[in-house]
Amino acid sequence: MSRKALLGGLYLGETLGFLKPHPSNTIGAFLHRSLFRYGNVFKSHLFFSPTVVSCDQELNYFILQKTRGKLFQCSYPKPIHGILGNVSMLVAVGDTHKRLRNVAISLVSITKSKPEFLNDIERIAVQILNSWKDKQQVMFCEEARKFSFNVIIKQVLGLTSEEPETGKILEDFLAFMRGLVSIPLYIPGTPYARAARSRISSRVKAIIEERRSRNGRSCGVRNDFLEILLSVDTLSEDEKVSFVLDSLLGGYETTSLLMAMVVHLLGQSPTASEQLKLEHEQIRSSKERDEFLNWEDYKKMGFTQNVINEALRYGNIVKFVHRKALKDVKFRDHLIPSGWKVLPVFTAVHLDSSVHADALQFHPWRWEVINNINIKILDV
């Protein structure tokens, strides 16, 4: 082995093996081999750092529970910071993250409480479904992405799909997304370099300034997410821009992937598909023809929620998260040294037959049993 290859191996460790693509309903060759050799918790060298990998349900829960305390903090690789910026809620830590998170919860709660929120989503869904009428074939994953983006851009910036600015933001955002999952080489022409946050940030700032100017001219205040965001005095200008970008990032890819996963899995389970259809028809039949669905209608969709839960478990859209130990942490027989990266791997727990019976089967009805157990625990 050459000196260059050896240094590269020491620097990258087992990262390439850990990230090697594999079906989302499997744990992949790297985890399969490591679990067999070392058990549910093992040490490695990933993302340029000594790392503890946890495939243990209790330890994962402990890590996530203690992230907001003094034991662990978010610790995404530096190239991610280079794209997201240091004031993004996704990479902020400590008191800054706590402050941003509290504002985010408040903003989302206010936005979701407005009737227009669900009405806009339903209108966009119907609009996209109507666009399929004259098509012999549709690429559902692309249509799901279109739906997700149109919903987010309407809720966050008050823009519709027909407005020219929407297309420009989508173009910048897609470049932003490609860079986020690319090799971090800041060389002109590479996806990472083209993902520079400045371009999409400048466009969002221009929209914010235009909104402020419009409000100053007394042209009517729009009661949407951006309007509420602008009224928050505890956020800097950069933090407000980051909130918009985080909203786009947080809702675009994961939401569209989940929708595509649900459709794919229901296509392989006619019984689940029929039960889901029946639930929706019963709720729809209780409404007037042109009446919008409301939150009470969605709360009645118990089986729909079971399907979503099972698709999240079986499809593993988010496979793991990045954390770092802030001090030596002892959990059972495991010691996590201070400064080490910690990766709670959700996939391994989701597909663990000791946690979920017949874990490799798509079975939405399992959540009826889990929900009943949780209700009984709460009653006690």
Rank of each mutant, 00 (worst) to 15 (best):
F48C: 09
V345D: 03
F173G: 04
P50V: 08
G189I: 07
L100D: 04
V126G: 00
S286M: 10
Q305M: 00
V263W: 06
P184C: 10
G9F: 05
G189T: 07
R217A: 14
T111R: 07
R123K: 14
G39I: 12
G167I: 02
L185V: 10
Y298T: 00
R211V: 06
V181H: 12
V244R: 07
E163K: 00
N60F: 04
D358R: 05
I27T: 09
K98V: 00
E253F: 13
A359E: 01
F331N: 13
I152K: 07
S182E: 04
K330T: 15
F72V: 10
P77L: 12
R203P: 01
D328L: 14
I375M: 12
I207V: 02
A175C: 13
S218E: 15
R123L: 10
R199M: 07
T111G: 04
L10P: 02
E310L: 00
L276Y: 05
D358G: 01
R332I: 08
P23F: 12
I63T: 05
T234N: 04
L235G: 08
N371Y: 05
A29K: 13
N223S: 11
T166D: 00
M261D: 03
G251M: 06
H356A: 01
E310T: 01
S24P: 12
I83R: 13
V41I: 15
S354N: 14
R323H: 04
N150W: 03
K319L: 09
P23L: 08
V345M: 06
K376D: 14
V156P: 10
Q155M: 09
N102Y: 00
V349E: 02
G13W: 03
G82K: 15
A272G: 02
V342K: 09
G82Q: 15
K43D: 09
H322I: 05
L226E: 06
P164W: 03
